[in-house]
Simulated scan of single mutants.
Amino acid sequence: MKMLALPLLITLLHSPICLSVTVSSSKPKVEVHEHTDAVLSCEFRTEKDQNPRIEWKKKGKGVTFVYFNNKFTGHYAGRAKIEGATLTIHAVTQKDSGEYRCEVTASEDHVNLGEAIVTLNVLVPPHVPSCEVPGSVFVGVGLELLCKDKLSVPPATYRWYKDNRALTATADTLYSIDTSKGSLNFKSVSKLDSGMYRCESSNSVGAPKSCVAQELKVSDYPVNTAILIAGAAGFTVLVLFCCICVCICRRRGCCRKSKKTKSTKSYHPSPPPPPPIRNLKHYKQTQSFMI
């Protein structure tokens, strides 16, 4: 057995070892604040090729080049640098977030292509949210106030204030708050809900931001409006009542049309025909005529 293992070991020692280019990243997930520098690490090792080709690509809706043919492309030109295969992007924004791929091609190696993937997430502090507060509403209506900050990363959470006092929804309150959507919902507003409302957005990146407080007025329906509503309701009830009466009448046959009687005309007999004229051959003169 030892005699068979020795030739095999000698053969392995003398045979060439097939190595390939290897690519890796010491930090595959990178999180940085907006307007700071992002370092996307990429380390490689080749078998023979001392001058491999290095490329960086970004994956989005499609694949775009970041570094190609020894130069930066698109909006990365003038705001990025490369050292070895490590990429540094200056003053990153939310548009720079995404998945990046480092590719190293060593044409002289047996397996000549290697790649590493780095994910960049740009953190954005809260921005001033947009707040939707109507100027005035009537007592008893349902109402929803909305607040939204579309730019913060991670997504913001929201808090509503009335007259500079934070609102907290409980089982006893007549409103509810969705802190993730930024909505404040009233089932039925009353005059006590009048006041100055504002919303605040916050996340783990920066200081909270608030919109300008806006006034909400809750008032009774005006007298004229109440009269119009009552009149419209009464008219609707009257129309429905008439329709029901007509339907009942038709079912009972009260609304059937009576048949028209034939009109009688007075009869006048035609006069008798004149007596026929007798034949002149049979006419005899009975009297003499003198002139």
Rank of each mutant, 00 (worst) to 15 (best):
S15H: 08
S15V: 06
I17F: 15
C18E: 12
C18L: 15
C18I: 12
L19I: 09
L19M: 11
L19D: 10
L19T: 11
S20D: 14
S20Y: 08
S20H: 11
S20F: 05
S20V: 04
V21A: 07
V21E: 02
V21S: 04
V21L: 01
T22N: 10
T22D: 11
T22E: 13
T22K: 10
T22H: 10
V23F: 00
V23P: 03
V23Y: 00
V23H: 00
S24H: 04
S24Q: 11
S24L: 07
S25F: 01
S25L: 02
S25H: 05
S25A: 08
S26M: 04
S26P: 00
S26F: 00
K27Q: 14
K27S: 13
K27D: 11
P28G: 06
P28K: 08
K29P: 01
K29L: 13
K29N: 13
V30S: 08
V30D: 09
E31C: 07
E31A: 12
E31R: 11
V32G: 03
V32Q: 08
H33Y: 06
H33P: 00
E34C: 05
E34W: 00
E34Q: 12
H35N: 15
H35T: 04
T36C: 03
T36M: 02
T36E: 07
D37I: 05
A38W: 00
A38V: 05
A38Q: 04
A38T: 03
A38G: 09
A38K: 05
V39R: 07
V39C: 06
L40M: 09
L40D: 03
L40A: 01
L40S: 02
S41L: 10
S41E: 14
C42T: 05
C42D: 01
C42K: 01
C42P: 08
E43S: 07
E43M: 03
E43L: 02
F44R: 04
T46C: 09
T46M: 06
T46D: 03
T46N: 06
E47F: 12
E47I: 06
K48E: 09
K48A: 06
K48D: 06
D49H: 07
D49Q: 07
D49S: 04
D49N: 08
Q50G: 15
Q50S: 14
Q50F: 07
Q50Y: 06
Q50L: 13
N51M: 04
N51C: 05
N51E: 11
N51V: 11
P52V: 04
P52C: 08
P52K: 05
P52H: 04
P52N: 07
R53H: 11
R53S: 15
R53A: 14
I54H: 01
I54C: 10
I54Q: 05
I54M: 04
W56A: 01
W56Y: 03
W56T: 03
W56F: 03
W56V: 02
W56H: 01
K57L: 13
K57D: 08
K57R: 14
K58Y: 00
K58T: 12
K58L: 09
K58M: 12
K59A: 12
K59E: 15
K59R: 12
K59C: 07
G60K: 08
G60E: 11
G60P: 01
G60I: 10
K61S: 14
K61G: 15
K61L: 14
G62I: 12
G62A: 14
G62Q: 11
G62N: 12
G62D: 15
V63F: 08
V63A: 12
V63E: 15
F65P: 07
F65A: 13
